[in-house]
């Protein structure tokens, strides 16, 4: 499903390039549930953004579902993001002026689906996440856990090849966090491939496989 080879990524700091990701090799098979565990500042989000085709890598190869992402242009990547990736952001990234329904339905409309068709398809996901009574609420009227569920619903609604979650419990209280992790387990059992990043070992433990990232280098199992 995912195959990364020798990924490097750095940020320019004045004249010099500060390396953040160093020669990352990473593979995820279909149906896996992987947690990337690492301390704050280790480059988790940077890696996640590259996995999600939202950021450019400096060098390396990245195949997603057999497609050579490192050779794909921005325009085609837009389509990849829409169809293959469900991204769950650390800070939800909901559109504040849209209500829950409008937020969740967007990825489907972007595919050119009619509003009716898209609404039909949303319904199952909304039920799955228990948001039926919230569809007309604005994000500002929701709790953190509810917002995260909207964000998950939006990621799921297009049946992507892979779900990517950046610290999905990071901003939630314990019980909401537990709910989200339980949901992830269920989603994985339903066949979804999931990659989650976290700095919390307890959270990582709910995944079926853990990889560690330390100072921009990726290690399988213990470093």
């Amino acid at each position: 499903m995912i195959e990364m080879k020798g990924i490097n990524k750095g940020y320019l700091l004045g004249e010099e390039k500060l390396p953040i990701l160093k020669n990352i090799d990473f593979t995820v098979e279909k149906g896996e549930y992987v947690a990337i565990l690492g301390p704050s500042g280790s480059g988790k989000t940077t890696l996640m953004n590259i996995l999600g085709c939202m950021d450019e890598m400096d060098s390396g190869e990245y195949f997603l579902d057999g497609m050579a992402i490192h050779e794909t242009g921005q325009h085609a990547l837009t389509k990849v993001r829409n169809e293959k990736i469900g991204f769950i952001f650390q800070n939800y990234q909901l559109i504040p002026t849209y209500n829950v329904m409008q937020n969740i339905i967007m990825p489907l409309l972007m595919r050119g689906m009619s509003h009716q068709e898209a609404q039909e398809q949303c319904r199952k996901t909304i039920e799955l996440l228990g948001l039926e009574h919230r569809i007309n609420h604005r994000p500002s009227e929701l709790s953190g856990g509810q917002k995260q569920r909207v964000s998950i619903a939006r990621a799921l609604v297009g049946s992507p090849a892979i779900l990517l979650a950046d610290e999905p419990t990071g901003a939630l209280d314990q019980s909401s966090g537990r709910d989200v992790l339980k949901l992830f387990r269920e989603l994985n059992e339903m066949g979804n491939t999931i990659v989650m990043i976290t700095h919390d070992l307890n959270v990582a433990k709910s995944a079926r496989r853990i990889v560690r990232i330390v100072d921009g280098r990726l290690y399988e199992n213990e470093p």
């Binding site: 999600g52 837009t78 829409n82 169809e83 991204f87 967007m106 939006r154």
Partner: peptide, 12 residues
């Protein structure tokens, strides 16, 4: 918002 739209795969 434009960033969100782009991330979700909205074409330019």
């Amino acid at each position: 918002e434009i960033g969100i739209l782009k991330a979700l795969g909205c074409s330019r």
